[in-house]
Simulated scan of single mutants.
Amino acid sequence: MAQNNGKTTERKRRSIVKTISWRAIGTIDTIIISWIVVGNLNFAVTIGGVELFTKMLLYFFHERAWNKINFGRVKHTPIEYEI
């Protein structure tokens, strides 16, 4: 993890990997729901394919924005021992 003035941040690479893994799960869910609602597997896969890229992009920027916000973070300081 990168350090910035005592604050921890995520590297962009980590955000990208999290984005891809989460979107894979989300897209499978969208395809299944679309197939149930529409009843056409080809159309469901098309919906899932479009949704895959748009939501991946949105999630990446959402994740990076939250990375700049300290809300809900706790800074852990090392314990100093007297010798």
Rank of each mutant, 00 (worst) to 15 (best):
L52C: 06
G26P: 03
L57P: 01
I31W: 02
V50G: 14
G48P: 03
N40H: 11
V50E: 10
T27L: 04
I47G: 01
L57T: 01
S15N: 14
T30Y: 01
I25E: 09
A24D: 03
T19P: 05
T54R: 05
I16Y: 15
S21P: 00
I47D: 03
G39K: 09
K55E: 04
E51T: 07
I28Q: 08
V38R: 02
E51I: 02
I31L: 02
M56H: 11
V37R: 06
W22G: 09
T54V: 12
I31T: 06
S15M: 15
S21M: 09
S34L: 03
I47T: 07
M56A: 04
N40C: 05
W35F: 13
I16F: 15
V45W: 00
N40L: 08
T30Q: 02
M56G: 13
L41G: 09
I36M: 08
G48A: 06
L41H: 04
I16A: 13
I28K: 07
G49C: 06
T54M: 10
F43C: 09
W35D: 00
R23M: 12
D29Y: 06
I47M: 03
V45D: 01
F53W: 10
I33T: 07
A44Q: 08
T30V: 14
I31N: 05
V38L: 12
D29S: 14
T54S: 10
L57M: 10
T54W: 02
G26T: 05
F53L: 09
F53K: 02
A44K: 08
K18G: 10
E51Q: 09
K55P: 01
N42F: 06
V50S: 10
V17L: 15
E51Y: 11
V37W: 08
F53V: 08
G39T: 03
N42A: 15
W35H: 05
V45C: 05
I32E: 05
V37P: 01
I36H: 04
I36Q: 04
F53N: 02
T19S: 08
I16N: 11
R23D: 15
G39D: 02
R23T: 15
I32L: 10
I16E: 12
G39R: 11
I20V: 13
W22Q: 07
I36C: 01
T30K: 04
A44V: 04
A44Y: 02
F53S: 03
L57A: 10
L41A: 13
F53T: 07
V17W: 14
N42Q: 12
V17K: 15
R23W: 00
A24S: 12
T46Q: 11
K18S: 13
V38W: 11
T46M: 08
A44R: 07
V50R: 10
T27S: 13
A44G: 05
V45P: 01
F43N: 12
T27D: 04
T27Q: 01
T27I: 06
G48F: 04
I25D: 11
E51W: 12
S21T: 12
G39E: 06
L41T: 12
A24R: 03
